[in-house]
Amino acid sequence: MRAYFMDDLPGDQRLPHDSGNAVSDETLDKLGILRWHIPSDAEGQWEEQVNVIANERSYRNRDICLVTKEGMGDAYEANLKKFYHEHMHEDEEIRYIIEGGGYFDVREHTTDSWVRLHLSAGDMIVLPAGIYHRFGLDMGNKSRTLRLFKDEPKWIAYNRGVETESNPYRLEYVKSLEVSA
C-alpha cells in the first residue's frame, strides 16, 4: 500500500493524482487507519491470516464485492459514482483486496486534504467509523475485495454534509483524533 496526499488537478479519478508528498505511517496511525499486507497468492494462507484479524476485531460476517464492468453490468457506472462520493459509515470499513486494486481516499482531519491510499492484492485496511472517505478503481479497472462486517453485511453511506457533522459516530471519531494528538 502506498499513501500520499492527492494533487488538486482535475482528471480521471483512476489516475494516481500523486502530489509527490508521501504520508507517513505515523499520520495514518493518527487517523486511526489500520493496515496489513497479507499476500493473496499463498493458497488458503491469506484466508487464515484474515480470519485471525477478523476474530480479534469481532467480525462475524463477510462477502466478496467484485467491482468490474462485467461483474456489475448496467450498475457499474452508478456504483463507481456512489463509491467515489465523499461519505462516512457508522461502522468500521474493513477491506482485503484479493485481486486488482483501487484507491481509498480519506480526509486528513486538520487540513481537510485528501490522503490517497493505493491498495493492491494482499492489502487490508480498517477505516474507523466516522472518517470521511471514498473509493475508486485504479487504471486496472478491477477490484475483487473481501468485505468484513461485525454484524449482518450492510453498506450504508452517509454523504458528507451538515447532518454528518453532528452524527454521533463522526463526533466520536473527531474526539478520538483530539485525544491522540
Rank of each mutant, 00 (worst) to 15 (best):
Ala3Gly: 03
Tyr4Met: 04
Phe5Glu: 01
Leu9Asp: 10
Arg14Lys: 14
Pro16Leu: 11
His17Pro: 04
Asp18Gly: 04
Ser24Lys: 11
Glu26Asn: 10
Leu28Phe: 00
Leu31Val: 09
Leu31Tyr: 02
Arg35Thr: 04
Arg35Asp: 05
Trp36Pro: 02
Pro39Val: 10
Asp41Gln: 14
Gln45Gly: 06
Gln45Ile: 11
Gln45Phe: 08
Glu56Ser: 10
Asn61Trp: 08
Val67Cys: 09
Lys69Thr: 11
Glu70Gln: 14
Gly71Thr: 03
Gly71Pro: 02
Gly71Asp: 03
Met72Phe: 09
Gly73Lys: 06
Ala75Asn: 14
Ala78Pro: 09
Asn79Glu: 15
Asn79Ala: 12
Lys81Leu: 14
Lys82Cys: 07
Phe83Gln: 00
His87Cys: 06
Met88Asn: 04
Glu92Thr: 12
Glu93Lys: 00
Glu93His: 02
Glu93Asn: 02
Arg95His: 06
Glu99Phe: 07
Glu99Tyr: 07
Gly101Met: 05
Val106Arg: 00
His109Asp: 12
His109Ile: 12
Thr111Asn: 06
Leu117Pro: 01
Leu117Cys: 07
His118Arg: 12
His118Cys: 08
Ala121Thr: 03
Val126Asp: 05
Val126Glu: 07
Ile131Tyr: 02
Ile131Val: 11
Phe135Val: 00
Leu137Cys: 10
Leu137Val: 11
Asp138Pro: 04
Asn141Glu: 14
Asn141Met: 11
Ser143His: 05
Ser143Glu: 05
Leu146Arg: 11
Leu146His: 08
Phe149Val: 09
Lys150Met: 08
Asp151Ile: 09
Trp155Pro: 02
Trp155Cys: 06
Trp155Val: 05
Ile156Leu: 10
Ile156Lys: 15
Tyr158Gly: 03
Tyr158Ser: 08
Asn159Cys: 09
Thr164Ala: 03
Pro168Ala: 08
Tyr169Gly: 05
Glu172Met: 10
Glu178Trp: 07
Glu178Ser: 12
Glu178Ile: 08
Ala181Glu: 15
